[in-house]
């Protein structure tokens, strides 16, 4: 017996409703835990780019909201010691092989990088993901560098005439990462007064 289109539509509708409901419930059940994990991740990546020795406050709570060169709102976490800003950390963005890469960059009050860590990326596993500290120490070489060291025109991968190594089989990822970090340091240079001012 041939069933009418209405019956099929009803069946499909019931399945959509049922699974939609189940997904909504799963989202409700996991939302808080996922937000907590994201916060923990942020705290631990902040801890890696701001040494505990240079602050006596909690940088996760001491934050500013500013606009970067692309008009994007970014959150700046500040490390204070004795009422003076000793370092700042903020997210910087780069374009990799497979879309956006997000980094956390820590900068001291002299404009030197305290450290860089990847927060999220979609690069090819096994090739581009060597920017993660877990999979290689490439990202560690930026610690202590600033815009004058190396000179600005050397803030590129070696293939482009700069001083940073690219990966075997992946040039676009490190190129994007170097550009993002350089952009982050330029942001610091431009907004130094605001970043280091205590209000």
């Amino acid at each position: 017996m041939k069933q009418g289109a209405l019956t099929h539509a009803f069946i499909l509708g019931v399945f959509c409703l049922g699974f939609g409901l189940a997904l909504a419930l799963t989202d409700l059940a996991t939302k808080d835990a996922i937000a907590a994990r994201a916060m923990e991740d942020r705290q631990s990546s902040l801890g890696q780019v701001i040494p505990t020795a240079i602050h006596d406050n909690n940088p996760v709570l001491d934050r500013l909201t500013m606009q970067d060169a692309n008009g994007r709102e970014i959150t700046v976490y500040r490390a204070l010691k004795g009422g003076k800003v000793t370092g700042v950390a903020y997210e910087v963005f780069g374009t990799g092989y497979a879309g956006q890469m997000k980094f956390m960059l820590g900068v001291d009050d002299q404009g030197r990088a305290l450290g860089v860590r990847v927060l999220s990326h979609k690069e090819t596993p096994g090739l581009g993901d060597k920017i993660e500290v877990k999979k290689g120490d490439w990202i560690l070489q930026f610690t202590g560098l600033s815009l004058g060291n190396p000179p600005v025109d050397k803030w590129k991968v070696k293939k482009d005439g700069g001083r940073f190594d690219q990966f075997t089989g992946a040039t676009i990822t490190p190129r994007g990462a170097v550009a993002a970090i350089r952009g982050g340091l330029e942001f610091f240079a431009k907004h130094q007064a605001q970043l280091l001012g205590v209000n």
Binding site: H8, A9, I11, L12, F19, L23, T26, A29, A33, I34
Partner: peptide, 29 residues
């Protein structure tokens, strides 16, 4: 309960829902 005519969208729905369940649950716990 799944009729022949709508089985493909229902299958896709079920696979996509399961992928999302796994994604959310693993992310959380």
């Amino acid at each position: 309960y799944i009729t022949r005519e709508v089985r493909i969208p229902v299958y896709i729905l079920i696979v996509a829902a399961n992928v999302t369940f796994v994604d959310l649950v693993m992310n959380a716990w």
